[in-house]
């Protein structure tokens, strides 16, 4: 596996695996515990590396194929490394009719990535999302946990500059 897969032996990864084991202990025997485990594992590692899926399979005593099936079914789970911030452009109906497509184009141009890709500096992963439920502020953009409402394309460069400086 690539270096980014965070093998248990790598520096800084051992601690994460220890936390993962704690999570797995907690959910062992819990009915339907796989999805909560995947959520927490992704929070821990930033995405779901292959080695992590293997560990989950062993501990929860489930076939790896099933774990792969579940983690690839849901759009929230990522099998690839992600940027520090996830940028989500809301493509709900209200945002769509109020100009989300133009906003998305501008962000692609600003970040130089396509939908689903991560910027070269590893800062941003661009996603489109289904309604975030802030329709009153359409069009809406979220970066990490921050929500931006009524975003016009010309505001885009300035918004991202703030994160680059942090």
């Amino acid at each position: 596996m690539a270096a980014s897969s965070c093998p248990a032996s790598a520096h800084g990864c051992a601690e994460k695996y220890q936390k993962l084991d704690e999570i797995l202990q907690e959910y062992k025997g819990v009915q339907g515990g796989l999805i909560p485990v995947l959520h927490q594992a992704q929070l821990l590692f930033g995405y779901l590396p292959h080695d992590v899926l293997v560990r989950i399979a062993e501990e929860l005593d489930l076939p790896l194929s099933e774990i792969y099936g579940v983690s690839s079914f849901y759009s929230f789970f990522s099998l690839k490394p992600r940027g520090k911030y996830t940028v989500s452009v809301c493509m709900g109906t209200a945002c769509y009719v109020k100009g989300a497509p133009a906003l998305l184009e501008k962000i692609k141009e600003t970040l130089q990535v396509e939908d689903g890709e991560t910027t070269k500096d590893g800062l941003f992963t661009l996603d489109t999302t289904r309604c975030v439920g802030a329709c009153g502020l359409a069009p809406v953009l979220t970066i990490g946990d921050d929500v931006y409402g009524r975003v016009t394309p010309d505001k885009v460069p300035e918004i991202f500059e703030r994160y680059r400086q942090e």
């Binding site: 339907g32 999805i35 909560p36 995947l38 959520h39 079914f73 849901y74 759009s75 929230f76 789970f77 999302t129 289904r130």
Partner: peptide, 8 residues
């Protein structure tokens, strides 16, 4: 509580 994972 069970949290979904982005599937309509």
């Amino acid at each position: 509580i069970r949290v979904g994972a982005g599937a309509f």
